[in-house]
């Protein structure tokens, strides 16, 4: 078997534990969507989508282009209101109608474009729109201290000065600042949209380690990625969307690369996934 390659890995994990038959200690998810539907005019984008994110875990959200990942994230973030379905946070039903509602719950999203202002420095970016004030003037000292503490807490050592403009930072450093900005607000759920997409290998490694550290510190992290190595390197669970339906949400320790690729491209893999790959059936979560 000296020439074992990825193709051999389509084997279902050993019968000693069926995929998804996780431990009974499954904690309650901090963020949960049940049967969410979303249409834009005649286009039905999300069909009865269920999704859960857990504190202390990285949940990868994978799917082909157009599978509905961005729409799902925007529904979670309050940019698109959901048409029907349940949105639960810490076990309680909530109404999220705007990004402000999501932020109030402790949900932060880091978009691919990072939304940082090149002409402002790191501290100014981290507090953009939520500046600390002391009377009527900005409380620069407190903001700088908080920014420094957050970066230190994330073991970020690559940034030299907090007062350097963001335009002088590398791609990886920008991503780091954007992530630090998201966790500065005692957030509980952080959603990262393709955080390693434009980065070189060394910086990708640093960002992946940062993503893992966020979860290890107790946050629920949702990672959107197309890179299967990134997904398998840091995730605890993998949620695969297929044509607007949740094909499966499984434990990363129970699936193989080939199974996840099948879920993404065909909506099913063996016992996992949608009962009818063309849709029609409800997205089935692994038991």
């Amino acid at each position: 078997m000296s020439e074992t390659t990825s193709t051999d890995l389509g084997v279902t994990p050993a019968g000693r534990g069926a995929p998804g038959s996780g431990p009974s200690d499954d904690a309650r998810p901090i963020l949960e969507l049940r049967g969410v539907n979303k249409s834009f005019g005649p286009v039905h984008v999300l069909h009865d989508v269920s999704f859960a994110a857990y504190a202390g875990e990285v949940t990868a959200l994978v799917g082909d282009n157009g599978a509905g990942k961005s729409t799902l994230v925007k529904c979670i973030g309050g940019i698109h209101p959901i048409d029907s379905g349940e949105y639960l946070f810490e076990g309680k039903p909530v109404n999220v109608h705007s990004p402000r509602d999501a932020a109030a719950l402790g949900i932060e999203i880091v978009y691919q474009d990072l939304a940082l202002c090149d002409n402002l420095d790191i501290v100014q970016n981290m507090f953009l729109g939520r500046e600390r004030k002391n009377g009527i003037v900005l409380d620069e000292d407190t903001m700088e201290q908080m920014a420094a503490k957050t970066l230190q807490g994330l073991s970020v050592r690559t940034v030299k000065s907090l007062r350097q403009p963001v335009s002088s930072l590398s791609g990886g450093q920008r991503q780091t600042v954007a992530i630090a900005k998201a966790v500065l607000w005692n957030s509980k759920v952080v959603i990262l949209d393709e955080p390693t997409a434009a980065l070189g290998v060394a910086q990708t490694a640093q960002v992946l380690e940062l993503v893992r550290r966020l979860a290890d510190q107790g946050l629920a992290v949702v990672l959107i990625s197309h890179n299967m190595n990134d997904v398998f390197a840091v995730s605890d669970r993998i949620a695969a969307l297929y044509l607007g339906r949740m094909a499966a949400q499984v434990k990363a320790s129970d699936v193989t690369h080939a199974q996840v690729v099948e879920l993404i491209t065909a909506g099913r893999s063996g016992d996992l996934g949608l009962t009818n790959g063309n849709g029609g059936a409800e997205g089935k979560e692994a038991p």
């Binding site: 990825s6 890995l9 279902t12 190595n229 997904v231 398998f232 320790s253 193989t256």
Partner: peptide, 10 residues
Amino acid sequence: AAQVRSRIAI
């Protein structure tokens, strides 16, 4: 990591 974890899962 995809390969490593797949092999572990199996």
